[in-house]
Write a protein that binds this DNA or RNA. Structure first.
Lengths: 174, 174
DNA sequence: CCGACTGTACCGTCCGGTCGGTACAGTTAA
DNA sequence: TTAACTGTACCGACCGGACGGTACAGTCGG
């Protein structure tokens, strides 16, 4: 779909030049389209950003689902695996994510993000054997996003691997 | 100092109306000062935001220091305590923090924040007995910021208390 | 011909930053 | 004593540019 190409362009602009560079003109330019053309598909900038956010959330949900075999307690494990998949992919998936969430700080733009957060970290889901341990593990994965966004030099490949192993081990021990 | 009053005003605007409401006019208005008066103290908006960020970082550093008794492995424990202090304070300290970090997504504005992140999560600091466990615990604390900002309903007082206890227990067991 | 789609010219607003000026509290010096 | 001068704090009108959004004329495949 053409919309996806436009969203791709928006993501590129965002991750290359930051939040305040995300203008309709810049996105249209990047997509090889005029501003009018862009506005035809996304009637407003808010619509564009909202689409950006929801797409990225869907992507991550899919990634979780790929690792979730439905067994009890499998969700938290899948969440961990999905997170580390993003960071070990040579692809800058996590740059995209960080840039997008940064762009969605304003009022209702964050709404889909808040909803996703509540879903990802909500308790009462997979009837974890040890819910507190599961929370700790999920929170650590969440925190990793933050640290990798602001100080990627802190965790190299080796540390990431050790971290992943430890988080999974915690789930097994719980 | 007058500058602190201006920063207070900026924080108020930020946490009440979000990032894009942070205009020089709004801050000046909130502080009961004209735009010119505000610009006198902070020659540019970037200077204002940077001051905002560094002040909040200092505050958190102080909070950590309050809980750090210097004993081996004490830093990570202090980091956890500082984090939970912020969330259990009736004060909306964490709203302020979230709002400010959200405002500092752009290029060099995030620099002090990145430096702080690297410091807070950098290994090789307190010669932790079990560095991986310490990392997990710090990351979980970090993740808590994110979750509390976007979905505060997920963790109530009871869950927070349980979480805190568990994180400290992990450090003892490590 | 028709509707999906594109391009361009333009508008209004908002916002960061500039600038000339004011008020006033010292300080100096005749 | 007082007039000239200086530095600090602050004011508010204004400017220039950017940016979101609109209007509208065109294009092109079916």
């Amino acid at each position: 779909m053409k919309k996806d190409a436009l969203l791709d362009a928006a993501e590129t602009v965002l991750s290359e030049h930051g939040t305040q560079a995300l203008t309709l003109a810049a996105v249209a330019d990047r997509a090889g389209v005029s501003k009018g053309g862009l506005l035809y598909h996304f009637p407003t900038k808010e619509a564009l950003v909202k689409a950006l956010v929801t797409r990225v959330i869907e992507e991550f949900d899919d990634l979780i689902a790929e690792h979730d075999d439905g067994s009890p307690g499998s969700y938290t494990r899948a969440y961990v695996e999905a997170t580390f998949t993003v960071f070990t992919e040579g692809d800058r998936t996590h740059r995209r994510w960080s840039a997008i969430t940064a762009a969605a700080t304003d009022p209702e733009l964050a709404e889909p993000l808040n909803e996703a957060m509540a879903r990802w970290h909500g308790r009462g889901r997979g009837e974890d054997p040890d819910p507190v341990t599961a929370s700790v593990v999920r929170l650590a994965a969440e925190g990793l996003w933050e640290v990798m966004s602001h100080a990627p030099e802190v965790y190299g490949d080796a540390e990431l691997a050790a971290l992943r192993q430890r988080l999974l081990a915690l789930l097994d021990a719980g």
